Structure formats: C-alpha cells, structure tokens
Simulated scan of single mutants.
Amino acid sequence: MTPEQIERNPYYQENLRSFGLKWFVALRIEGFAREWTLSLHRSATEGPFQEAEIKRLLRLSPDLSSAVALSLDVASCASNAAFEAFSLGGKAVVMLDRFGGVIRVTGAADRLFDDDLRIRSNRIFSTCRQSMARLEQAIHRACTQPGECMNSPVLLRRPNSTPIVAHVSPAHGIAKDVFSSCQTYVILVDPYQRSTPAEGTLQALFGLTRTEEALATRLSHGQSLRDIATTMAISYETARTHIRRIFSKIGVNDQADLIAFLSHFDI
C-alpha cells in the first residue's frame, strides 16, 4: 500500500493511528475455518518493514501453522471433555463459538427446543422479539467481554409453552485458549420442570426403602400425601409414618424442605 492509501484506509484511521502506529506486516496462519493472521506493527518514525525482514518473517509462517494445529487439537480435547461432562450430567447446554454460532447441543438442550425456541441459521432463535434481543445482547457481551461477564440470565418467553431461563456465560475453563472453538455456554433451565433423583439413588445414599423412595418421589412431583397413600394402596397413617422416617433419614424437617431438597437433587 502506498502512504496515500494507508492514510485513507479505515483500519489505519480507526485503529492504528490512535496508538501511533502506521506500518504493519501480516503473516497468514493456516488451519482455521476463518482466516487468521499475526500482525506486527511499527510506528511512523520506525518506518516500513524491509523486504529482507519480510522474507525472514515469511519463513515463520509454516511453524506458526504447525503450532496452531497442535493448539487446536488440545483445545478440541478440552471442549469435547466439557461437552461429555454436560451430557452425562443431563445438563441442557448449548456451546457457542466466539461469534455466537452454535457448535454443539446436548441432548437435554435439544429436548427443550420447539417451534418457539430452536436453532436457526446456526444460532439460538426465539420467536419472541424481546427475548431474542436480550439473548443476543447477553451472548455478545459474553463473547466480547468475557472478563466482565460472568453469568447473564435471560428469560426466553414461549407463546405456546412455559418460558425457559437461559444462563449465558463465557466458557472460562476452556476459552482462555484463544484457539478453542467454544467460547461461550448457554445453559437452558426449565423452571417448571421438577428434577428428581434416579431410581435407587435415595436408597443407596440415605438408606431409604423402596416404598419410602417411591413415596418421596411422588411427593416431589406435587402429589398430596393422601393421594399418594391411595395410589400406593396404603393407609394415610402408614404414609405419615413413612414420611417421618424419610425426614429423619434425609435430615429435613417437613414436606416443604423435602420437596425443595429433591428438586435440586440433580443426579
């Protein structure tokens, strides 16, 4: 570029000039889906890069590309491990790249999608305009200001169903690596969905009998103790005896405490 072209270039006008920089050389780095370069800059007084210097820098390009390929493999392993952990834990998580594009979706997240909330054009899409605007804003902050954005909850309204809460957070564990494809997590939570432990878990951890576990599970689903007694073909007093034993074994004081405990018992 000629000095005149540099003066008119928007990149120079908006970025380099404010830092007292003028001359630069860019080395292309192979291995990315999008084109990456390593830019080296000089001030106006230091002058442009000479041809001999540029030739020496060009010889570094293959080595940089090899280093990037290795970094991509390491970052991919970390990203895959995080995804497997989310999947095994039953978490509804959508992993996004640095531009907010969807990379991977756990099975739990996929089951929450419907006509009102879905993946469209490789992005999370909501038919509610206000919800969509807030979600895009939260994702943009997480992608561009990861150090300042920890966890931004967004209510995603669904005209034909109950709303979903989206927790948007930078992927701090793996996004520290600039080469990691995953830079942001969107954790989806259905506040109306009751969570209960897998069958046998309460028996193994707290020594509940099979009957006590079944009673506790039904109670956590919102059934009354009297209805549970009828369904399980036991008397109401027997059900009350079971519930007192459950309180003692788990360490809660009443039905409200038990329901709250089980709703957060995510196994």
Rank of each mutant, 00 (worst) to 15 (best):
A108T: 07
S161Y: 09
I29D: 12
S76Y: 10
Q255M: 04
P153E: 12
T211G: 04
D63S: 12
S220V: 07
L57W: 14
A171I: 01
L60G: 00
S126F: 01
S235V: 10
Q137C: 09
A175Y: 12
A108P: 02
S131M: 02
R240C: 15
L60I: 05
Q203H: 06
Q255V: 08
S126M: 01
R240Y: 12
L202F: 05
D257T: 08
S169L: 10
P163K: 05
A67Y: 12
S87L: 08
L64A: 03
I29S: 11
A26I: 05
L262M: 12
V178A: 04
V74N: 12
S39G: 08
R226L: 13
F265E: 00
F19E: 12
E148F: 09
L156G: 00
F261G: 04
A239S: 09
S71Y: 01
V189A: 06
G107N: 09
A256E: 15
G89Y: 06
I29R: 08
V178H: 03
G147M: 07
E84A: 10
P146A: 09
I6K: 05
R158F: 14
Y192I: 03
K55T: 07
C128K: 08
F113S: 00
S248A: 14
V94G: 02
E51V: 06
C128T: 13
A81L: 12
A229C: 02
H221F: 15
I174C: 09
Q203T: 11
T241D: 11
N80T: 14
N9A: 04
Q223F: 14
Q193W: 10
L219M: 07
P191T: 06
G222C: 02
E30M: 13
I29E: 14
A233T: 11
